[in-house]
Design a protein around this nucleic acid. Structure first.
Ligand SMILES: [Mn+2]
Ligand SMILES: [Mn+2]
Ligand SMILES: [Zn+2]
Ligand SMILES: [Zn+2]
Lengths: 124, 124
DNA sequence: TATTTATTGCGACTATATCGCAATAATACA
DNA sequence: TGTATTATTGCGATATAGTCGCAATAAATA
């Protein structure tokens, strides 16, 4: 893995992700910390994913959301939990549920992405 | 609901979806039945979704895939099963698994999208 | 301080999907 | 059958999300 450097942009992205607690899209992040180029933020997020600091969720809208890795140890990353996305406020949260996945014979598991959409408590 | 008309384009899209059995993206479909405008195919697919003939899956790549509704009755649509997407051949299939979803208090369920990625049997 | 190279900004670019509008054609009906 | 209605289509423009190449910048190291 490539050696990482400490930058303000990186710290800012990390801080806002920690602060919010929920998964955030690129533009959610951009709204909170202005002044960085779009490509820069995407690159930071992709680096976080590679490094296992953050995991990526693909919403029902096809957009990417990023959330801090809380439950997983640094070595074994398992993000096989279900997420919830609010159709009103767009917020994405990690749920507890981690469904059992049985693949057919000859199939190999690599990744899992699971989103329930609906209306969140705040939007009711 | 709007009254539908019978057109060759519609029949062609339906036929290829039935024939393949797996979920197909717009460009997979376009490769099989050439000669229709991109917007037209999208509109046909979106109509199918509205009418409950087809259900929409959002892949890990953020792309939309469409699959025939097989298990669900015309009135009650439940597509709460997990899908498999091959990272090699891009094929998307419906699996049997239908995870139990427990939402937190005050949350309402509307939709579900779940994809396991990996390598399919054919690509091993 | 000087060197190395990870990171950034910028603009161009790709990809997916939708939209407005005029033209076309499926359906209903006289 | 001929005509009116309007669902559907084609086309081009548009929107949005995300990546890429390259030169400039700046963090780390010596
Ligand atoms: Mn993790
Ligand atoms: Mn259905
Ligand atoms: Zn909400
Ligand atoms: Zn495959």
């Amino acid at each position: 893995m490539m050696k990482r450097r400490n930058t303000k942009s990186k710290d800012d992205v990390l801080e806002i992700l920690k602060l919010k607690g929920t998964a955030m899209s690129h533009d959610m992040i951009e709204n909170e910390i202005e002044g960085y180029n779009r490509a820069t933020i995407y690159r930071i997020l992709n680096r976080f994913c590679k490094d296992g600091i953050v995991h990526r969720i693909v919403g029902m809208n096809g957009k990417q959301y990023f959330a801090m890795c809380t439950t997983c140890k640094h070595e074994e990353h398992r993000h096989n939990h279900i997420h919830f996305q609010c159709n009103n406020c767009e917020k994405v949260e990690c749920l507890e549920e981690e469904p059992v996945i049985n693949l057919p014979k000859g199939y190999t598991f690599e990744n899992f992405n699971s989103v329930v959409s609906g209306i969140c408590q705040d939007c009711h």
